[in-house]
Structure formats: structure tokens, C-alpha cells
Design a protein around this nucleic acid. Structure first.
Ligand SMILES: [Mn+2]
Ligand SMILES: [Mn+2]
Ligand SMILES: [Zn+2]
Ligand SMILES: [Zn+2]
Lengths: 158, 158
DNA sequence: TATGATAATGATAACCATTATCATTTTATT
DNA sequence: AATAAAATGATAATGGTTATCATTATCATA
């Protein structure tokens, strides 16, 4: 946590930006929050510690944290950007349950390798990727056809 | 093209919806347009043939076409939904160039297989996926560091 | 071929996450 | 202190998409 703060401070000074109480607080709260958090959620958490904080500052800081390599944007495709820790966190992809929205983090070295090869085969230099698997989680599998909260994205039948 | 129209008609009647001149025209123009088209683009094309068409109708019809299995939503992550043909078109994924936005369609059976296995390993029943690779295309590789139109998504360094 | 019932259309307003604007305040440097 | 540069927070704006709603078109039936 101190290490992350140092990294952020270094990133800021390297870019002629300034460490401020707001930025420090936002980073703190972010680091204490596991999972995939929206700017809105983070804003409401930060506001509990500093009534006067502005929502725009949270948006701005989250962007800075992403550039600094401390946060990573996660886009589940529902129109709301989420953020997760990106420092000392291994890269991973996500499986999302279309029934209950449960999300788990997964990694498959084989897939990563093949992605690299696939890009190369087409002459591309691969710099990143987004991969989201959609399905039905084990729990939802048991309680059969609860058609209740289907997500209705267009990812089904890929 | 007649086959697609039949499929659409069948889908509509199956859902107690009606085939209309507007829907027919929108499907026609959509089928004649290759690539990944936005609702806006399709709207302007359709409007050339029917001045009186409404933009909402294009949005609505595109959604219907997706449900009917004739169109597929493509989300490159820039906040604009695109659509591509989905009937008699093999599933594929995309590589997008971060410099010039060129996009190519790719498929890797090995990856598809591993995705299936990865989901199963976590107890999920896989229903679909989204995979976008980001990189630098061969052309942009040659004309070095044209930092011109960098996309600035957050997908880099996956 | 009128008549209801239902669905579709097009114009427009609303939505909503995110960005831009800008006056004011804070911070770093002289 | 004085100055310049950057950050903040309130608020307006953005822009793709969706909701609303009065009007029109379509379908089934008599
Ligand atoms: Mn994650
Ligand atoms: Mn495609
Ligand atoms: Zn589930
Ligand atoms: Zn390129």
C-alpha cells in the first residue's frame, strides 16, 4: 500500500502532476476495495471520508491510476466502466454468469500463447486483449431455468 | 438475401410482430453493407432511399435483426455499437490496430477449444464470448511511431 | 370493406455515464 | 509574499441509445 502510493507519487512527478490529499485518499480507498468497482461506487465510499470530494475528481483520479499502472479498466459490456487493482496483480480474464452476473477471474496460459501466435500470424504486434466468457455458473445450473435476471447482452451464441 | 428476408419474416410472425416496408428496407440495406456498421451509418444509408425514415426505427430494427440471428452486435469498446452480418457467417473474433483502427477478422480453433475447456474447468456452461485483440498492424509497424491517432483505450498491456 | 384491436412509426424528450468548462483554491517555485 | 501552474468541485454539456406518445399502418374478423 505504501509501495503503491510511492508508485503513484513517482508517476505524478514524472508527469509534472501533483500529489494532493484528494488523490491520496482516493488511492487509499481504492486499494482497500477488492473486486471490480465503478467510479460511482468509489465516489460514494470516498465521500464517507471526505464529504467535500467531487465526483469529477474521482473520475479523473481513476484515469490517472490507470495510466500509472495501479488500476485497470474492466468493461463487462453493460455501459459502465469498472476498475480493478493492477499492481502486483497477475493478468486475468473473466467469466460472467448471464443469470446472476457472478464473475470469476480466470487465466489460461494456453489461450494467452495462442493469442500471441494468432496476432503474429496476421502480422500484428500484440499489445493487449480483452476476453470475456459468458455462461451459466454452477449455482445457476442447479436451480434450473430461473429466467429471472437474464442479462440480454448480445454475447450469447458467439 | 431472400433467405434472410424469409428468416426475418418468420421470426417476426413467430413473435407476433409485423413485417413492414421500413423493416424490409432496413434489412435490405444492411445486407448490402459489408463490414461493421453503426446504427448511425445504416440510418444515413437507409435515408437515401427513404427520406422519411426515423432513426429510432433503425435502432429498433437492428435490435430485432440481432434477436433474429441476422445481425450480431460488435463492441470494439469505443462506446459505439456496431453490427455485422450473422447469418451464414462463421463466428470470428477481431484484431484491432491501435494506430489506424484497422480491424481484421480472425478465428483460432485452438483458442475456441481452450475457452470451452476453461469454462468447464470452473463449472460454467459456456454460452458465448467476446475476444478482441489489440495491437499494431503491419502497415503501421513500417511507418514507425506515428503517434497520431492513438486510441487510448485501456486494453494495452493486457 | 368497415371495424375494432394491436403493433409500428417518427418526432422528440429523456436517460445516464462520462467529459468539458470554468471560477476558485491549492501547490510548488522564486 | 509574489507568481505561475495545476487541481478542485460545481455544473453544463456530450452523445449514443432508449422511452414516450400521438399518429398511422396492419391484421383479423364480421
Ligand atoms: Mn478481475
Ligand atoms: Mn467481424
Ligand atoms: Zn449464476
Ligand atoms: Zn494500423
Amino acid at each position: 500500500m505504501t509501495e503503491e502510493k510511492d508508485l503513484f507519487a513517482e508517476y505524478l512527478s514524472r508527469n509534472n502532476l501533483r500529489m494532493t490529499p484528494q488523490r491520496g485518499l482516493i488511492l487509499d480507498v481504492f486499494l482497500r476495495t477488492e473486486g471490480h468497482i465503478t467510479s460511482e461506487e468509489l465516489y460514494s465510499r470516498v465521500k464517507r471520508k471526505d464529504r467535500s470530494i467531487g465526483q469529477a475528481t474521482v473520475y479523473r483520479t481513476l484515469k490517472l491510476l490507470s495510466d500509472a499502472g495501479l488500476a485497470r479498466e474492466v468493461d463487462f459490456g453493460d455501459g459502465i466502466l469498472r476498475y480493478e487493482h493492477d499492481y502486483a496483480h497477475e493478468h486475468h480474464d473473466h467469466i460472467i454468469c448471464e443469470r446472476c452476473n457472478r464473475q470469476i477471474e480466470v487465466i489460461d496460459e494456453g489461450i494467452e500463447r495462442l493469442q500471441e501466435r494468432l496476432a503474429k500470424r496476421h502480422g500484428f504486434h500484440l499489445t493487449g486483449h480483452r476476453m470475456y466468457l459468458y455462461g451459466i455458473c454452477p449455482e445457476c445450473m442447479k436451480r434450473k431455468d430461473r429466467k429471472g435476471s437474464l442479462r440480454k447482452t448480445g454475447h450469447t451464441s458467439g
